[in-house]
Amino acid sequence: MTADPKSNSQWSRYGPFLRFLAKAVAVYGMWYVLYDLWLLPDGWLDAWVSQSAASVTGTTLSGLGLDVAVEGRTVQLAQTSGVRIVNGCNGLATIGAFIGFIVANPGKTKRRLWFTDV
């Protein structure tokens, strides 16, 4: 029995999507192993990102003329209780997902690194 040429062309249109999906799943798998199984339990990267985010936030708000106090991961405005940036809310997991989508997108590596379509 021979294969129907129409059925082959019907599935070939899904090729780019399936390649994107395969890359996205592979990158997610690598991110899971790297982040959830190694970096997250250790905690050093999350602590650094959280403290850096608090520091940048404090500097930005001070530059806008607000009375800001930064202590570790906590940002306080005018003697309020403040906001503490915890590991789950520092954006590191979102950054990993964003990088995964950029890696999975088709195109030349140079264009993906510069986030351009030109």
Rank of each mutant, 00 (worst) to 15 (best):
V49T: 04
G58L: 11
S55R: 02
W11L: 13
Q51R: 11
L77P: 06
F98G: 09
G58K: 07
A53S: 14
T59D: 07
W114R: 08
Q79F: 11
T109A: 07
V118T: 11
L113T: 10
V75Y: 01
V33D: 03
R73T: 06
S12H: 14
F98D: 12
A53E: 10
L18C: 11
G43K: 00
T94H: 04
D42L: 00
Q10G: 11
A53Y: 07
A54L: 04
A54F: 01
D42W: 00
S62Y: 12
G65A: 15
V118M: 12
G58Y: 03
V68T: 02
G96V: 09
K23A: 06
F20L: 06
K6Q: 12
G29R: 15
V83R: 00
A69C: 14
V70W: 05
S7Y: 01
L39H: 06
N90D: 15
I102H: 10
G15N: 05
N90F: 02
G88T: 14
Y35S: 05
L37V: 14
L18G: 04
N105Y: 10
G65K: 15
T109P: 03
Y35E: 01
V27R: 02
Y35M: 04
R84T: 11
V70Q: 07
G58P: 01
L61W: 08
V49A: 06
R19I: 04
V25R: 03
V70M: 09
W11V: 14
F115R: 11
T74I: 13
L37W: 03
F101V: 01
S50A: 06
F101K: 02
L77Y: 09
V25A: 06
M1F: 10
F17N: 04
T60F: 15
A97M: 12
D4A: 10
S81A: 15
N90E: 12
A93M: 11
L21V: 11
W31E: 03
Y14Q: 03
S50E: 07
L21C: 10
I85Q: 00
W38P: 01
G91M: 11
Q51D: 02
D117Q: 13
W11A: 08
S50K: 05
T109Q: 09
F20Y: 01
V86A: 14
F115N: 12
G29L: 15
S52Y: 04
N87V: 01
G107Q: 09
G63N: 15
W48L: 04
V27I: 08
E71Q: 11
T94A: 08
L21Y: 01
N8T: 09
D36E: 06
N8A: 09
W114C: 12
T74P: 07
P16K: 02
S50Q: 06
P5W: 15
S81D: 13
F17L: 10
A24G: 01
T80G: 06
V86T: 13
V75Q: 01
A104G: 09
F115Q: 14
G96Y: 07
V68W: 03
S7F: 04
I99R: 14
A69H: 07
Y32A: 05
L113C: 14
L40K: 04
V70A: 08
D4L: 02
L92M: 15
A24D: 14
Q10A: 13
T2V: 08
V103I: 09
G96A: 13
D4C: 02
C89M: 15
L18E: 09
L66G: 04
S52T: 15
R13L: 07
N8D: 07
T80H: 09
A22Y: 03
L40F: 11
T74Q: 13
N8I: 03
A78R: 13
L66V: 07
Q51P: 03
Q79Y: 10
